[in-house]
Write a protein that binds this DNA or RNA. Sequence first.
DNA 1: ACAATATCGTTCGGTAGCGAACGACATCGC
DNA 2: GCGATGTCGTTCGCTACCGAACGATATTGT
Lengths: 172, 172
Amino acid sequence: MPGAFSSDDEVELRQAERDVNAVFIDESFDFEALLAVSNVFRAATAVRSHMEREVLARHQLGWSAFVVLFVLRVWGPKQSNELASEAGITGGTLTGVLNTLERRGLVKRAEHPTDGRRLVVSPTAKGRRTIDEIMPVFNQHEAIVTSGLTGDDRTQLARLLRTVLRTLDTEV
Amino acid sequence: MPGAFSSDDEVELRQAERDVNAVFIDESFDFEALLAVSNVFRAATAVRSHMEREVLARHQLGWSAFVVLFVLRVWGPKQSNELASEAGITGGTLTGVLNTLERRGLVKRAEHPTDGRRLVVSPTAKGRRTIDEIMPVFNQHEAIVTSGLTGDDRTQLARLLRTVLRTLDTEV
DNA sequence: ACAATATCGTTCGGTAGCGAACGACATCGC
DNA sequence: GCGATGTCGTTCGCTACCGAACGATATTGT
């Protein structure tokens, strides 16, 4: 979303609001909602690319590959289905991510013992070692990224975002 | 990031914290930072896919194509450089997005009058019509997505996220 | 039993998305 | 006035990412 919407400068922000309203002339236009959505998206992009550049790049891992590996490390072997949902990606995307991870020897696919449709994914020893190496640095950068916020702010932020997530879950 | 981290259930959340701490044994592990980052990312993904599904799909536009078109509609012809920065994508990505938009006849590339390196991008009439049609619905969905928040909450959310963005801007 | 139905993971076509390398053009220093 | 340096947009290789279609396997209803 446009950079002007995440400006710190109140004057610039109000100018952007005027610019938008000049084009979309509508009494019910909700600029605050636009700002909130816009900033959620910009922050996510900025955080993600920061993490990929500063932490994940040297391990040749993208964000999703990292998340999948993290889930497997903490909660152990998982079936593909649940893994996709935990990682917040679709099944089709997971197939690609698993191909990448398997090629690098970080993950292993295995058949489900009783259900022929299912697939069980496990981290390899190398996969566990990799995530153990990454995680402390990753978390350190999470702390850096949120260092402008007080403890209360962080909790508040998480709460507000959970509200948005809950709305989306139930609204659809 | 793992779905457990955005749970509304406090018990489940604390269990997830225990699970993580059981694996990454580290006194200084910052779970609140993990939660904040995780939720920013999950919320952004959820919002984006909601918008793409409910609003943009019928116009065959992805998020970035929409943002680029929006910027051009509100602020008029722009040079490629600034356009990428406003839309929050890199130059390489913009080239692809512009190809898509140009193929659909929503945007036009033109040479800069004096500087041979530069490129000026303008919306076509069809491009303006398209965004004018989309925007009211889009904004309505932005309002829906944030309908669980009070007015104060929205402002607060935008403020907290701007703080994160500012941290990332200056920290790097 | 056994067809209808549901649920898996994968495939496919399309759109992003990044960083690095590249070639075209501009500008600066002298 | 012309090389060194900087700044454009594009290309390239790679990784994602989605929804729809697909084939294989399970389950359910009767």
